[in-house]
Amino acid sequence: MNLLTQVLLIFVSTVLINNFVLIRFLGICPFLGVSKQTETAFSMGLATTFVMTLTAAATWIINTFILEALNLPFLQYVSFIIVIASLVQFVEMFIKKTSPVLYKALGIYLPLITTNCAILGLALLIPLNGYNFIVSIVFGFGAGVGFTLAIVLMAGLRETLQFGDVPEALKGVPITLIIAGIMAMAFMGFSGLISV
């Protein structure tokens, strides 16, 4: 299998088949918390995709050239979380200086990304799957696109749901979870899309 086919397969499978939110259960907190409006959901997805792609590259380098080279696997969690926290901080400062418009659009969602378990999950999945550098970046980008897809779809449904007649006890989180369940079932249909 040449690199291009591999990259395409990884991308499609991370976006649709192994969707981070609906199939792997990573990043549920923002998925439930920031999915009230399509616009904010999209900004959140954008910021997450950005950080995920950078995280995939940064943690691959650190894992390969520092942790594996010096045989320090027990420092993996501690070092990954430091990398992610400082990366988010750095991205925030960089965007603030270069593009105030984008900074305003992303707002409070940027710092929140540090505690999004999808990011740490992504960093941990890469060494687990043994991806190379290019595939890792595609994997990170695909994971972000999959997250954006799920959160924007959910926001669209919740906007429509405001006019629906939801039982009092199910309002808010419970109905969102039930919708997510139905979406997860729908996404299971993608599992036959490609056979790796």
Partner: peptide
Amino acid sequence: LPGGAFITLGVLVGLMNLISR
């Protein structure tokens, strides 16, 4: 499977809301 996880939790949270109310 994943779908069942979301639906079960949704129903349980709804039930807990009902009980506490």
